[in-house]
Simulated assay, not measured.
Amino acid sequence: MIIPRFKRILLKLSGEVLMGPGQFGIDPATVDRVAGEVAAAKAAGHELCLVVGGGNIFRGLAAAAAGFDRTSADYMGMLATVMNALAVQNALEKLGVETRVQSAIPMSSVCEPYIRRRAERHIEKGRIVIFAAGTGNPFFTTDTAAALRAAEMNCDALLKGTSVDGVYDADPKKVPGATRYESLSFDRVLADNLKVMDAAAIALCRDNDIPIVVFNIRGEGNLAAVLRGEGTSTIVRNMEMEEQHGRL
């Protein structure tokens, strides 16, 4: 599969990626590796912004199911994403990459507030911007926050780095014979309820013509390979865009 070269990218990282081999928390070695791949993508000429989930520290939805008030649980999850964003910022800056964290929940002692024009200016100056605290509102996932920020930053694509190498017709961890899709339309993802991102995120990307590329960030070098169009992944886009490119 040939993926067109995207200039400005929003990379969505699941919080679980930062756990590395552990079951909870942040693994410094894994964060350093991921930061190295992000830095290499920037050096290759891409403009980058990031959204990092918080599932390695706290999951609002799971906590709500266990009896927490949903609104309070979601705010706790947002705070977890700030911790992860600061960890990634620290790893990037150790590599000499200028990075800014912007939070949708103002906390001026540790990071900037989210201001769209300021974020755009940072990216134009070659800095990497990490968006934290989701949308700043409960009941919205970090997937939705990623799609929203990708639209606001006029990104060419949203890359979702997870622990699987694409979108399957069944859970590949539970169904050994599950088949990976090379490409999908947004409408197919919504109609078949495929687990790419939540429906709000899919609709946002569809309406703003932002392709979603799902790949496995856990494998070393996978981000660079996907950006070159050589890696294993699934690309989700509008059907008319597929016809226009004619390369899928």
Rank of each mutant, 00 (worst) to 15 (best):
N238S: 08
I2T: 10
K42D: 03
G161R: 01
S109I: 11
R218N: 07
A63K: 15
L223H: 01
L184M: 10
N216A: 10
I202P: 01
G221S: 09
V175F: 05
L92I: 03
N208T: 12
F6V: 00
R116C: 05
E16F: 00
T81C: 06
P172S: 02
R100I: 08
G246D: 14
I202W: 01
F140K: 07
L184A: 07
A225M: 06
L10P: 05
E120T: 06
M1K: 12
N238T: 06
P4K: 09
V164R: 07
Y168A: 06
E120M: 13
S183G: 05
V38K: 02
D192H: 15
I212V: 12
G53H: 06
I128M: 12
M76Q: 14
N216Q: 08
F186R: 13
K94S: 12
P28A: 13
A201V: 10
A147F: 05
G96P: 08
A104K: 01
V110F: 14
N222Q: 11
L223E: 02
C155R: 04
P211T: 09
V51F: 00
A73M: 12
V17C: 13
A200Y: 04
M153H: 02
R116M: 09
E243S: 15
G177W: 04
T71N: 13
S108H: 14
S233W: 00
A73T: 11
S109P: 04
F140W: 12
A201C: 12
R59G: 15
D165N: 14
A132L: 07
L50R: 01
L158M: 10
R121K: 11
Y181V: 09
D27P: 05
K42M: 12
I3L: 15
C111A: 15
Y181F: 15
K7Q: 14
R127V: 03
G219V: 12
N193T: 08
N154W: 04
N137F: 08
C205H: 05
G166A: 05
I115K: 07
P176T: 00
G231F: 00
T30Q: 11
N238L: 05
T30M: 14
A133F: 10
L10Q: 04
E93N: 00
T71K: 15
V167L: 05
N56M: 02
V52A: 10
G126T: 08
G67Y: 03
N208H: 15
S233K: 02
C155D: 06
M197R: 08
G67N: 10
D171Y: 08
N216G: 04
L158P: 03
V51G: 00
E112F: 01
D171W: 03
A29L: 09
Q23H: 07
R33Q: 14
L204F: 07
D192M: 09
A225Y: 01
V175R: 12
A35M: 06
N154E: 10
E240T: 10
F186G: 14
T144R: 02
S185K: 10
R180G: 12
K173M: 14
H46V: 02
G219M: 11
D198S: 13
G54E: 00
D169K: 14
F24G: 00
D192S: 15
R121C: 07
N90K: 13
R188V: 03
R59V: 13
L61I: 10
R237H: 14
T30V: 11
S109T: 11
A39N: 07
G126K: 09
Q89W: 04
F68G: 02
I115W: 11
